[in-house]
Amino acid sequence: MTSPPARRALVTGASRGIGRAVAVALAARGDRVAVHYASDRAAAEQTVALLGGDGHAVVGGDVGDPGQAAEVVRQAVAALGGVEILVNNAAVAPAPDNRHAIAEVSYAGWQDSWRRMIDVDLIGAANVTYCVARHLIDRGAPGSIVNVGSRGAFRGEPEFPAYGAAKAGLHAFGQSMATALAPYGIGVCSIAPGFIGTDRQAARLAGAGGEAVRAQSPFGRVGTPEEVAAAVAYLTSAEAVWASGAILDLNGASHLRT
């Protein structure tokens, strides 16, 4: 049996965590991957070193800047010779230094948090999607786009409302694009992970509040980057085109939508 031809993927925010796991999973099935980073090129190069196969690339830029977002896609297309898969994973994630609970944060801090999270998590993903989609349309080629959202879009993020709003917007954007791009053979899906045990979260999970975080799921644990990557691998496969428009909850039953 002849193996399907390798495809080419751009994974944003792939220098560590979920993005790194996604890059590894796509490379393991034979895809060539452009590993995107915002500021830490060394970490992105470490991701590339973990990838099976060859022909991978590192591309850099702040997707929150419209010009740099377009340049990231240009770099990926040039390095790989084209792109068929986009995984919008780059995000400004909740952290102690961007916490903006409305009763506690200054107005200036409120503005800063909203602007940065919306610029990267929503508008940045929209701009990268535009550039990849137009590349595919101009080629007359099918493709797959997956947005990495969050359960916070549905349950709320009281200490990080800009993050919850950005991810809700990302999910809605993905469904709009699923309808708009289907005539061109481009499928678009989103994933809404719960708490994922990345390296960045290791200290929190090991601390006093770690048990409470694990208890959010009836499985008594948090998710892994590899579980998210496995879902992305399916949703970017040829077999998943009929799932276009879907938002996949991936949270270990820690939040159930009705």
Rank of each mutant, 00 (worst) to 15 (best):
G52I: 15
A125Y: 01
G53I: 08
I137Q: 05
L136K: 07
D54I: 11
V105F: 12
L136M: 08
V120H: 01
V73R: 09
Y130T: 07
D119W: 06
L51N: 09
I102L: 07
V87E: 09
A141Y: 04
G52S: 15
T129V: 04
V48C: 10
L86W: 13
P94E: 12
S144K: 08
G55K: 04
V132C: 06
A78H: 04
Q75D: 09
D97R: 11
E45G: 00
A93N: 15
V83H: 06
V77D: 11
T129N: 06
Q75L: 09
E84I: 15
G61F: 11
S144D: 09
S39C: 02
R139T: 08
H100D: 04
H135D: 10
L50E: 13
V128P: 00
V58M: 03
G109S: 05
V59H: 00
V87A: 05
S144V: 04
G60R: 07
A126S: 08
A93L: 13
L51I: 07
A90Y: 03
G143F: 00
V77Q: 05
L122K: 14
G64N: 01
A79W: 10
R115Y: 05
I102K: 08
A43Y: 03
P94W: 12
R74T: 09
V87I: 12
N127W: 00
G61V: 08
V132P: 03
A43E: 05
G64A: 02
G60T: 11
R115C: 02
Q75S: 13
N127L: 00
A133D: 12
G53N: 13
A78T: 07
L122A: 12
A76H: 02
A125K: 00
V77S: 06
G61R: 08
D138V: 12
Q68K: 05
D62C: 14
Y107K: 15
R116V: 08
L122Q: 07
D121L: 01
H56T: 01
A76P: 04
P142R: 06
A69V: 04
D97V: 11
P94V: 11
I145G: 03
D54P: 12
L122M: 12
G82Y: 13
R74Y: 05
D62S: 14
L51A: 12
R115E: 04
Q68V: 03
G64R: 02
R134F: 14
R74L: 09
G64T: 04
P142K: 06
L51R: 03
A126K: 08
E45W: 01
G140S: 01
V59L: 00
V120E: 00
G124T: 00
A44M: 04
T47V: 14
R116T: 11
N127F: 01
I85S: 05
V146L: 06
